[in-house]
Design a protein around this nucleic acid. Sequence first.
DNA 1: CTATTACCTCAAGTATGGTTGAGGTCAACA
DNA 2: TGTTGACCTCAACCATACTTGAGGTAATAG
Lengths: 153, 153
Amino acid sequence: MDSSGALSVGEVAKRSGVAVSTLHFYETKGLISSTRNAGNQRRYDRKVLRRIAVIRIAQSAGIPLSEIKSHLDTLPNTPISVKEWRELSSEWHAILTERIEALTTLRDRMEGCIGCGCLSLTDCPLRNPNDVLAKEGAGPHLLGDEQIATQKT
Amino acid sequence: MDSSGALSVGEVAKRSGVAVSTLHFYETKGLISSTRNAGNQRRYDRKVLRRIAVIRIAQSAGIPLSEIKSHLDTLPNTPISVKEWRELSSEWHAILTERIEALTTLRDRMEGCIGCGCLSLTDCPLRNPNDVLAKEGAGPHLLGDEQIATQKT
DNA sequence: CTATTACCTCAAGTATGGTTGAGGTCAACA
DNA sequence: TGTTGACCTCAACCATACTTGAGGTAATAG
């Protein structure tokens, strides 16, 4: 590490708990950036650590890297301020809440269906969560009205 | 469709809402099975529909196919009875509950950390989830200590 | 000055969950 | 009997999120 306080890739890896190969990977994806020293080696500003922290937290919430990137891209620049973190985390909070609700609904429906055993494509609520189920439309006599209405292809 | 009530792959696709290619794929993975007619075409027992229904429900709960397979493999045989469905769904119910709790913990910690902005690898609870955060699908994983230790050598 | 790390790039491999396409066969309808 | 449409296999491809390895350079410790 040089006197300017810049970090090498190995140091960033150690401090962030992320593998060197992952840092390279994130860089190719535009999630983080670095400068190079005279010998073409990556040098990172310390602020990258916060950025990586944010990335890993978002990932643990199940948010894909592409989406994380687009969230980060809306922010002014590398140093993520407290205010920006507040904005990010509230967006992600909402996403998490949504996911939690979806899983809870599924779980409770599963509970309700224990023993019912129907699993009918049209009748069982477990088979028909509000979201998309049919890639190929079902057979003519199996479709409910609203599915016929939205059927594609 | 022949008089025995066996279903062709196309019919199963229509009735289950799953693509033909996916049925082939599931078969290669051992999740479903079929017999062949004289012309080497797949013929399915109607019971496969219930099996597929169970698979899709488990998938929507975020359970990987390999795990779904191992759950299904513990069951006597193809016709999944109401009793077996009850067992399966209670196991998956538990898995869902775990995932929901992990996500909720993450969300609440995020809430608590809004504005704190520390994100310290050692101090911030968001960076140090003691509980296992479910890894979502083929996604990323947080490095454990021993992996961090390993990577510098 | 040399040996050992650490670092570089680029290509390929791993795992999940499929889809797409080529080339060929089978079944059903007129 | 001919011609569609459904089906067959096998290989390759898509996307996500990385890791691993080869071949070579840079920095550092003794």
